[in-house]
């Protein structure tokens, strides 16, 4: 079992959710986060350009069985990579982290392991 954590653009959440659902991965957790990366984002405040210290992002967490790791990664990349205007991805599209998952327990039944995912 693996925990797939993806940090993506706020604007791509809709696309990532759609592609995950198409890949039949429907159990996800989404949260609003903010952080530093290489991306610089400008906002305008009374005619002055302002670069906020922290950029808002979306974090998606998906717990999957090993067989599904690649499918999940592919689906996330498909949705999160910005490919319009002729770009093949732009700085700020985000990252995916994969961590080993020691145990999964379904609260309602107490069942453990792969079947609880």
């Amino acid at each position: 079992m693996k925990l797939v954590t993806a940090i993506i653009r706020e604007t791509q959440l809709e696309a990532v959710r759609t592609s995950l659902i198409e890949a039949e991965i429907t159990r996800i957790t989404v949260s609003s986060v903010s952080g530093h990366g290489r991306q610089v984002r400008e906002e305008i405040y009374r005619g002055r350009k302002v670069i906020p210290g922290l950029i808002p992002k979306i974090k998606i967490e998906v717990a999957v069985n090993d067989d599904y790791v690649q499918t999940t990664i592919d689906a996330i990349i498909k949705g999160a990579k910005t490919t319009d205007n002729g770009y093949d991805g732009t700085v700020g599209d985000g990252k995916i982290f994969i961590t080993p998952l020691e145990e999964t327990i379904r609260i309602r039944t107490g069942e453990k392991g792969s079947s609880a995912i």
Binding site: S34, Y45, V50, P52, G53, L54, P56
Partner: peptide, 9 residues
């Protein structure tokens, strides 16, 4: 942004 412009959240 409508909410939390300078420091988000």
């Amino acid at each position: 942004r409508a909410y939390g412009m300078i420091s988000p959240h």
